[in-house]
């Protein structure tokens, strides 16, 4: 199993006392499969994604990624997993503003030590970015930026792609096109995909679907 969450609990301190965001979550994801995570705002979807990426730590339970227990792993180990095993696509794209499209596309692959210029060029072509390689993020539209973000993730050939509402900032037609591309490329690279979405329609296009409500899987 590539990713396993066992009895995971996460609580945040707020001004009105502790707020439990995830409450005993059990979840597993195999390599080469896709899973849609849906639920209302505040149901804990993004938190679950962050725990799976090792960006945050669970308060209780166990998160295991590629055989490593993230709950007990130190920061350098988790950083290494993020660099080499996981790829993230964010709703806000979060490109690196100081780098042009070409450098953004290659960035994570080079960090992971898996930069393949031919594969990156192929991705750029498939994503329709070949003509934009010299531009900077602020010179791109939202759809273009999201395509760069997807390309950046896939160029590193991660085992697990975590996507947090990757089409949430795009119109329906662009969102559909971007998702088509992502699903096709994830399938081609043999990666697993865990995608957070509000849209039942998009969720229906993935292998499985899990809904979170008040921190629990329903």
């Amino acid at each position: 199993m590539l990713l396993t969450l066992t009895a995971v609990t996460k609580t945040y301190a707020t001004g009105e006392g502790p707020l439990t965001v995830l409450d005993g979550i059990d979840l597993a994801l195999q390599a080469g499969t896709s899973l849609a995570l849906t639920g209302e705002s505040g149901s804990g979807k993004s938190t679950l994604l962050h725990l799976a990426a090792g960006l945050d730590l669970a308060d209780a339970g166990r998160v295991e990624l590629a055989g490593v227990n993230l709950t007990t792993a130190g920061d350098p180990v988790r950083a290494g997993l993020r660099r080499g095993t996981v790829g993230m696509v964010f709703q806000q794209f979060n490109l690196i503003p100081s780098l042009d499209v070409a450098a953004n596309l290659a960035f994570q692959a080079r960090l992971a030590g898996r930069h393949d210029p031919a594969w990156t060029a192929q991705l750029a072509q498939v994503l329709g970015l070949s003509a934009l390689m010299g531009r900077y993020p602020e010179q791109l539209s939202g759809g273009q930026q999201q395509r760069v973000a997807i390309g950046r993730t896939l160029a590193a050939r991660p085992q697990l792609v975590l996507a947090d509402e990757p089409t949430g900032n795009l119109d329906e037609a662009t969102g559909d096109a971007v998702l088509d591309l992502m699903l096709r490329l994830v399938a081609e690279t043999g990666a697993a995909l865990l995608m957070v979405t509000h849209s039942p329609r998009l969720a229906g296009r993935l292998d499985r679907r899990v809904t979170l409500s008040a921190g629990r899987i329903t």
Binding site: L55, M88, P97, S98, F107
Partner: peptide, 14 residues
Amino acid sequence: LPQVAPVWAMGLTR
């Protein structure tokens, strides 16, 4: 932070 956070998310320690 918006410039640093993605690099952190991609595997560079703080």
